Simulated assay, not measured.
Amino acid sequence: MTAPLAAVERTALLTAALRAAETSRPDRLYDDPYAAELAGRIGPELLAEVVRVTFPPDRPSDLPSTPDYNAIRTRFLDDRLRELVDDPTVTQLVLAPAGVDSRAYRLDWPDRLRWFEMDRPAVLAYKEQRLAGRNPRVRRLTVPADLTADDWEERLTAAGYQPDQPSVWLLEGLLYYLPEERVRQLLGRIRAVAAPGSRVLADLVNETALTLPSMQNLLRVFADWGCPWVFGTDDPEGLFAAYGMTARAVQPGDPDAHYGRWPDPVPPRSEPGVRRVFFVDAECR
C-alpha cells in the first residue's frame, strides 16, 4: 500500500488519464499503453471534472481544449527529447518532477543515456506499484527528492548524475503551480548543476491566462483540488535568460506545435489580453 498523493502530485494522474484518452483515438498523436494503468481510478475522475468545465453542455466553450493541448504538449516534448538525445555528447536526462510519465517505457532511447526520474517518494512508489513487471527501455534511475528541499542536488549526484556533463532536463506541468520566487530558485539551482550546452524543456502560461474571466472556471477546478495555478509570464525568454539560458518559446498552434490538432487561432505575441501557453526550449550558456 503506497502513501496517498498530495494535491499537485494527483495532477500527474490527470495527465495519465489524458494520455490514455489520446491513445484511444484513431487520430492519436502518440501511443501510451501504460497511461490507463498509471491513471488508476482517480485520473479519469479528475479528467471528467476538467471536461465538464471545458465543454459545457449548455453553451459554446470559451476555454482552451485541455485534451488537445495535452496531446500536443506530449507529442512536442516526445519529439524534442528524442532530437536532443540524438546528440552523442548527451548521456543524461532528468525528469523533474517525474510524475507518472512513461516515456522511459514507451519510447526507444540510446544505450548511452542515463534517465533520472526525480520526485517525492510517494509518487515514485505509486509508479513502481503500477508498472510492476514492466521493463524500461533505458537505464532508469529514480531519485526520491522534493524539488523544494535543500538537498535534491546531492541526491541527484548520489544517483550518478554528473554536473560537468551535458544534460537534458524536462520540467513538464510544473511551473504554473509554483510561486514566482520558487520558479526562479528552481531555475537557478538547475542552471548551477547543468553544464554549458545542457537543455531545459518546460511549459508555461502567461500572466493573462491566470486573470482572464473566461479562464476562471477551469482555474477554480485546480484551486478546489488544492493546487492553484499561481505563476505565469509573458516573457519566457527573459525568465530563462536571467539564469544563463538562451530560450526559444513556441505556442500550441504554431507551425512547430500544431500537428493538425490545435483548434484556436494563435494571435501574435504583440497582441495583449490573450491567454497563452508556451513550450520553452532553453540552452545553458
Rank of each mutant, 00 (worst) to 15 (best):
S270F: 07
F278M: 04
L63W: 09
I190F: 00
Y30P: 03
T74G: 00
D68G: 06
P213Y: 11
V266D: 08
G232E: 08
E9G: 11
A158D: 11
T208G: 04
L124P: 02
V8W: 06
V85L: 10
E37V: 14
D254A: 09
A48E: 15
T15I: 15
R19M: 13
F231G: 01
F222L: 12
T66D: 11
M245C: 12
A35L: 03
V50L: 09
A36E: 12
V8H: 08
P44G: 02
N217P: 14
D101Y: 06
F279G: 06
N70H: 15
L113Q: 09
I190L: 10
I42F: 13
T2F: 11
P263I: 10
E45K: 11
L63C: 10
P196L: 10
A249Q: 02
F279N: 00
R139I: 03
V85W: 00
D87G: 12
P263E: 06
P4M: 09
A145W: 03
D234N: 07
A35D: 07
T2E: 12
D31W: 05
V280I: 08
V200G: 02
R73L: 14
R28W: 09
S65N: 06
V90Q: 12
R140P: 04
A122F: 10
E128D: 15
G273Q: 07
D164V: 11
E117H: 02
P57S: 14
L178H: 05
V168M: 04
G43H: 05
P166C: 06
Y126H: 15
R28P: 05
D234S: 06
L18H: 08
T89Y: 07
T23N: 13
Q129C: 10
R276S: 10
V123S: 01
A149M: 05
E49A: 13
Y126V: 11
A125R: 09
D108A: 14
D264K: 11
I190V: 13
D224M: 09
V168R: 00
Q92W: 01
L47T: 05
V50K: 07
L239W: 00
A3Y: 06
P272S: 07
P44R: 00
A71V: 03
R191I: 06
L156T: 13
A21M: 04
E172P: 03
G173T: 05
A104P: 00
T148D: 13
L186G: 05
L18Y: 05
G188H: 09
N217Y: 09
T89N: 13
V85R: 03
P144A: 08
G43L: 05
N206I: 03
I190Y: 01
T74L: 02
E45A: 14
E283G: 07
Y243I: 01
R139S: 15
L63E: 04
V143R: 05
D281S: 11
T208Y: 15
D164S: 14
P26E: 14
Y161H: 14
L218P: 00
T233E: 08
P213A: 13
T54Q: 13
